[in-house]
Every structure is written in C-alpha cells, then in structure tokens.
Simulated assay, not measured.
Amino acid sequence: MSEIEIDKNAALIVIDVQEGFTDPYWGRRDNPAAEENIAALIREWRAERRPIVIVRHDSRTPGSPLLPGAPGNAVKDLVAVALGPEAPDLFLTKSVNSAFYGRPNLDEWLRGHGIGQIIIVGMQTNMCNETTARMAGNLGYQVLYPIDAMHTFDATGPDGEVVTAEDLTRATAASLHHGGFAQVIHTTDLLTTSPS
C-alpha cells in the first residue's frame, strides 16, 4: 500500500465508544485491540492538533444498554483519558446508524471547517461505522477506515445461521473497498509511533 496522506485538518470521527457495548446483550465480539487502537488515534490527533468528533448513540430501542440515562449510554473513560483536558472539537448525538443524521449536523460542521477527509473509528464495524462511511462517501468526503480501530459482534441471519464478527468485518472491508466508499487501512498507517 502506498503511503497514506493525511490532511492537516482531517477529522477523526469516534463513533459510539460507549460503556453499553461491554454488555452481554450484544453477544460475542471480535478485535479485543479495538479500544487500544482507538485511544492511540485520539492521542495522535490531539498531539497533531487535528479535529476530533465524538459521537454518542442515544438508543430508542427498549431494553438497549445505550438508552439515554442508562449507565451504558456513557462514553467510555478511555475517550476522555485519550482526549486529555480539552473537550472534543464537536460532540454529537444520534439515534440512527449514520452520524450524519445526528445533532448538531455533522455535514454542516465539516463543510464549515473546510474538512474533506475523515477517519472513522468506533463501534460497530458493520453498523454505525459502515453506514457513516457509506454516507460520507456519497457526500464526497475522502474516508479512511482503520479496520482494526473498531469491532462488531456475531449476528444471526434470516436463515438462523450465525455469521461471526470476523466474517462481518471482512465483508465490511471488502464492501467499502470494492464500492469505493472508503480506503480500508490499519491504525499503524495513521500513527507516527506505535500504539502504547
């Protein structure tokens, strides 16, 4: 792979890194290194003074660990620790898959700041992350998708067959790459130093 060019104002979009995703409600997950890689990218972006957007999912699904007011709705401590004392450049909430349907309006904020390149990390690989990447690609953004800075869960198909989280991740990577929605990369492609 050729060297990745990162815009000086490339925005890191951190999606749904919330306590509720540790709940057994979701089932078996993949990529135990996801949180470490997410934190490494937040620290890198903070050190380089690039913009960081934090997205929180406020679920409307009864029984979801991500319901507003539930302990699982909270953003994981690792985000605050990696950010340091300064607030993110933008904090938005959403109740659907795409961060572009959150509040405040992500597309308006990005365009208002002259940002054309975004990096998507967080949860889940094949859900909110993929939906946001597809929409970003359709809106004309250059999307970088570090596939190891996110995770997902096993899912049951309409025939009752369980598709593993690893297979879903591979399918997402192939679909985004093949469709030209995003450049699928790895965390180390974006770091000046290795994750600690």
Rank of each mutant, 00 (worst) to 15 (best):
G72R: 11
N73H: 13
N73Q: 09
A74Q: 15
A74T: 15
A74Y: 09
A74R: 15
V75R: 02
V75P: 06
V75H: 02
V75Y: 01
K76R: 14
D77S: 09
D77M: 03
L78W: 09
V79D: 01
V79I: 09
A80T: 07
V81S: 10
V81N: 03
V81P: 01
G84N: 04
G84L: 10
G84V: 08
G84A: 04
P85N: 13
P85Q: 14
P85F: 02
P85V: 07
E86I: 00
E86Q: 12
P88I: 06
P88H: 08
D89H: 09
D89K: 09
D89R: 03
L90Q: 13
F91T: 09
F91A: 14
L92A: 01
T93S: 14
K94W: 04
K94A: 00
K94Q: 09
K94N: 07
S95V: 01
S95M: 07
S95Q: 02
S95N: 08
S95A: 04
S95F: 02
S95I: 00
V96G: 01
N97Y: 14
N97M: 10
N97I: 05
S98L: 03
A99H: 03
A99D: 05
A99E: 02
A99F: 04
Y101H: 12
Y101P: 00
G102A: 10
G102N: 06
G102M: 07
G102C: 08
R103I: 12
R103A: 14
R103M: 14
R103K: 15
P104C: 05
P104S: 10
P104W: 13
P104E: 10
P104M: 11
P104A: 06
N105C: 11
